[in-house]
Design a protein around this nucleic acid. Structure first.
Lengths: 305, 305
DNA sequence: TATTGGCTTTTTACAAAGCAAAATGCAATC
DNA sequence: GATTGCATTTTGCTTTGTAAAAAGCCAATA
């Protein structure tokens, strides 16, 4: 199964559609539909589907295409988290981010040194640095080399992010351009309900956190002020760096989902001001529960390479 | 005068130091000092200084280094805005941004097509796209090519940015981590005072706008919550794209500077809550004065290449 | 008619070599 | 002792050729 990076990535996205319940057993998976949805051509989609049919998630019928196979659910989750990590570069990026968070690399490095350390090609390194650049903790030096910026390394950063979110997320609902989007509400209700019913117990932590971020990002979109949305997406990206190493408290997630559903109820009844207040309390709750992360590592003795 | 891009860039930064009044006639300009300050080595600084001494801004004394030359002020401003635009890539980036804002390019393009259109090399194109990526209006497609996102193209975007700023900038002053930094206050007072006295009448629009943004960005730093600062920097970058084509209303700038000085007064007296309120009114004022930009072009017939 | 499956074309990624320029080390000078 | 001026080393951009992979086309099929 030597499939291309993009094909593997798409394969994992298709698997996600199945585990999310958007695709169920027996559904006809159309090549062009998925290609449009993911913004790619049919070639990698097709390749991904072939891989998945080898893995037994899909079934290929001659000249009719691929269909979701009926399977015991336990078999669905496993193969995904094992091999098909979304994006290859993701791993390298995470390594870089973690090294910087833990002060294992100096604040300024040349590209050559980085390429040497991570054994990547120029283009791959470029991807990694572009992500770091976009997320605001790396920048080119004027001459040669890169500089990493000291952000979000301390426990306080976590608090600061939540205080920022407590400001913009409730305010977003009170924007003059705010319009209730029933499709978003409905979709989020579906996801959150499913989380409570089955996902919290079974899905990997990574995806649970993703669903949580998604809820907030979809809601803030309804403000119709793209700058609120952009800002939230960005702080969430940084938050993910911090939470990456945390163990997930699944009991807390239950409360979180209940909060989310309550906010959706208020919004659907048109009680926007109440929803805004509930959002503030929801975020405040997460903040007061203090950092759920094992911070110990940030104080350990550190190797400077 | 075939100097490297970095040298020219540094030359313009040095010129800025002179026009800002940080360096005055007769000062000894030390190579290592500037190199440290700009985060580069001595080589490009030296080259820049040689260029500037050819232009007559500096004077080189044998084995003693460079000194600021006494000059009629009119001669100082001219050569800068003429040729030494900060960063070469800046120009290409501006062209790309403008083309996208004016819908002269399609929403999705391959790298080849872009390189073709702007006659740049791969690395140069990479720089341009990296900036667009960081500023949030471009992203890689999963397969080949880039996608440009529809942001900040309409008159409403201007309003949205100001509403976002009206939320975060006053709130930043009320953050628990807020600490008054007298150095920042002092430096900004100097700049704003100088603006009122001489700069508004004489400096190019670009630099006036820069000083305005700088004021707000420096102030929000004092919240000691880097996420407030990052967010503001980002929306300001987008705002700059919009304001780039605008003519500057210099009368309005006078009021603006007076507002800024008033806010500094309040802060220095420790009346932070009042300062926060003043900031909100200040931003609200800019908003109510409606968009100062000639929006006509955004409605014109458009060529899709 | 819509969709698949195979095929061709287009586009990007990668590696190595040559080159421009930024960083750095060191002697000379104030 | 600090700073300049120059020589040397290091770095990264550019180019060229090649391989891999995605996009797009068209006939076959349900």
């Amino acid at each position: 199964m030597p499939a291309s990076a993009l094909a593997r990535n798409i394969a994992s996205q298709i698997t996600l559609l199945v585990t999310t319940g958007e695709l169920v057993a027996g559904d006809h998976v159309r090549t062009q539909h998925l290609a449009d949805r993911f913004g790619v051509s049919r070639s990698p989609v097709r390749e991904a589907m072939q891989v998945l049919s080898e893995q037994g998630l899909l079934e290929q019928k001659e000249n009719r295409g691929f269909f979701v196979k009926e399977l015991p659910e336990s078999q669905i989750v496993e193969p995904v988290s094992d091999e098909a990590k979304p994006f290859e570069v993701e791993n390298d990026y995470q390594r870089l981010a973690e090294d910087w968070l833990m002060d294992r690399i100096p604040a300024e490095m040349t590209e050559g040194a980085l390429r040497d350390r991570y054994h990547v090609t120029k283009a791959q390194l470029s991807d990694m640095l572009m992500r770091a650049l976009r997320e605001g903790w790396a920048e080119r030096k004027q001459g040669y080399g890169w500089r990493f910026l000291p952000v979000a390394k301390t426990p306080e950063a976590f608090e600061q992010i939540y205080r920022f979110r407590m400001l913009i997320e409730p305010a977003a609902m009170l924007e003059p351009g705010f319009i209730l989007d029933r499709r978003i509400i409905h979709e989020q209700r579906r996801i959150q309900t499913r989380m409570l019913e089955t996902d919290i117990a079974r899905l990997p932590a990574e995806r649970l956190l993703h669903n949580g971020s998604l809820f907030h990002e979809e809601l803030i979109k309804m403000s119709n002020n793209p700058f609120f949305h952009l800002s939230l997406v960005r702080v969430n990206q940084m938050r993910r760096l911090l939470e990456y190493r945390s163990r997930v408290d699944r009991d807390r997630l239950v409360v979180q989902c209940q909060d989310h559903l309550a906010i959706l109820d208020l919004l659907e009844r048109g009680e926007v001001a109440d929803a805004s207040y509930a959002m503030r309390r929801h975020l405040g709750g997460a903040l007061s529960r203090k950092s759920p992360i094992a911070w110990s590592w940030s104080h350990q003795a550190q190797e400077k390479s």
